[in-house]
Design a protein around this nucleic acid. Sequence first.
DNA 1: ATTAATGTTCAGAA
DNA 2: TTTCTGAACATTAA
Length: 301
Amino acid sequence: MPELPEVETMRRSIAAAVGCRICDVVRPPSSLKSILITPRLDYLRRRVVGRRIASVSRLGKRIILELTDGQSVKKLSGGTRSSFLENKFPAGDAIVIEPRMSGLVLRFDPPDRKHLRLVFQLEGGELGQILFWDQRGLGVVRLLAAEELAERLGPQRLGPDALNITVTELQKRLSSTRRAIKVALLDQRLLAGIGNIYAAEILHFAGIHPAVPSDRLPTDAWPKLHQAMRSVLRRAIRHRGTTLSDGTYRVARRRKGNFQLHLRVYGRAGEQCRSCSQAQVLRIVQAQRSTYYCPVCQPMP
DNA sequence: ATTAATGTTCAGAA
DNA sequence: TTTCTGAACATTAA
């Protein structure tokens, strides 16, 4: 579930981890297959235990915990502003968490114990711990050395963050492919942070048909798309993201998102469009994923 | 009881 | 080179 707004909500919930020392990293007992940790847990533990968290940031759908150097007294960046958003890569090593389909980064109160996959135990500050809970187990936790950061998170692998990209850059990057605009929006190498829910909502808000080839979008569509993207994502963050009917997505204290109440098209096939009331929302399949749109609000140009 | 679908990513094939 | 397909996994609905 986690797309940019949900990951940003999770990031904010653990932002107080800045300055804390990691005293252990443990995998709770579970009969389920374990998530991917690279390198292996014992090595990760050896590398991170004793170090402090220098910053808690986000790029696209990933959460990044930058670590201080071994024992040297490095300045801690206290702000919430992420240098990764500017594609500047700090000197330190970093733990990168990818929640993928069902991962949650939480302070406490996971939905259940069974799917609790990893616990970072902290000291100093009131946080105490960071939990990684993941129902499906597709999530990934990586320790990246400072030299690997630009390579693994740089513009070749991950595009600019959707809340940071300029309209010029958006047009430049997305018009580089002939794939449908909906499919291009999901390509994290072009643009980081958009997933299946928000791609549908953003295109609906912008009045763009999801099947238009990305390199054939009319010129006047780019500013609309850029504005729609910012508007939808920022509103979703304000509502702490979208909790779908399965109810797994939540942040600390069992707190769920509210943006599902504001969805215009996602998951609403056959229902009346909430904007125009002229047509039913349609569902098509693109790149093996469901796309929802309103044929009246989003006509084929 | 199968089968399909679910918020994502990526290796390998076309 | 670019784009498409299937697999990784757990769970639920049809």
